[in-house]
Amino acid sequence: METTGKLVDRPRQYHNVDGVGELGIGVMCLGYALLGWMQVHSPEHSAWNGMITFFVFIGVLSAVIHYGSRAIKLRITFPRTGFVEYRKRDKVWIPMIAGTCVSGMLAAAAAVGMRAHWNLTSAASLTGVFLAGCYAWGIARSVPWKWTVVVLLATTSLVVGLLPMSVLDALIGDSWVSRRHHLLSQPFAALWLCMTTYGVLTLISGGISFWLYLRRTQPQP
């Protein structure tokens, strides 16, 4: 028989039973990658580099993910395998505190690294490995085939760290970032590559889960 601890954990895993959690992560990563690309490849003082555009973009992206996930849950998941409302503590506070701590640590590490002239490309690559770890803990431990995705995520992140600098320079090209903040352009390119691969892989994995879910379940009368 399953242990009580595993049973307690099951509703949390249920959130991604239809792959919607991963689809959300995929859209978010690709959204951030698109925003980063537009910011780097448009002129320094264009609208893409303004704070208003940044907040509007993030707002629209969050709304698409939130309402999109909710629509899928309401119309597809709940009629098939049941409704769950999560506790506010798990839904809001814990992710918010964890997110703030991780962002703070990453920002501090980046600031220290820039001062010490470290190679931040490896840091960007390690961020990808860290995200792969989070994915493994949050999603893959309940679905065995998702470990393939974890391996792909970790491998891609490590490969990005090993890419020749010329490739990363080519990604940024002759933009205002490479001219004004040369130290940051290569780590940015590495992070952009990690985000894009992460987005594409989670989107594919989420899509497969969604397809499998639709095949295995039927709406209940």
Partner: peptide
């Protein structure tokens, strides 16, 4: 571990 859930 949830606020509420349904019978299904």
């Amino acid at each position: 571990s949830v606020e509420k859930a349904d019978f299904l």
